[in-house]
Amino acid sequence: MLDVEIARKAVPARGGPRTVIEGLRLTLAREEIVALVGPSGCGKTTLLRIIGGLDTRYEGAITWAEGVRPRIGTVFQEPRLLPWRTVRQNIALVRPPNPAEAESLLALLGLAPYADLHPPALSLGMARRAAIARAFAVEPTLLLLDEPFVSLDPAMAEQGRAVLATAWRTRRCAALLVTHDLAEAASLADRILLLSEGPARVVRELVVPEGSRRRGIAEGARVAAALT
């Protein structure tokens, strides 16, 4: 569904532009989940911004299968919820009102008791879940996830991953997941692309065996160790 080819992407820096992505190619099939794993600061977030259409200054091409940009749901590293709207209102804002779908997402992601709270009253873990619910609310064909579980304690992160996997089972869509944690990548993705330290480019591709997919972080860690 997606073909990404970025010849070069530079960002302004002191002492001249700095190249953050160079000669990067990746493809994504329908309903496929691909993890992008690389050291922090290697340009992963920039890549997601380019694919999401937030950054258009690069050399290369993003090609969508049907020639049109699909519906994209984005989960940013910080939850980026509007603090002056409740969780329910945050979700309602991004999609034309379909109360039934919004309510079912709230229930599915364990957010029902928190739906009428404002984001500042939520824990980081709950705010992240709300951001995931919002991304699913647009009924995306592509989900962009930028380190959605970073800086959560291990138990909360695992809960979040379980909730994400549940949402995936019922609302299938393709996804690009950026993470620096190989075990997390192996526990969520079908395929893992290892990126080089900046400028980013794909250095290795790992396929997670079908029987091991979305089986929790312990299985992910085992697969990651076996693959590398």
Partner: peptide
Amino acid sequence: QGLIDMAHSFRMGRGAILRHVVLP
């Protein structure tokens, strides 16, 4: 800017961004 980027990523229109994201 993060919230404004968020709004763009969800394809919110200019009017909606002004009303729901910028003015508050």
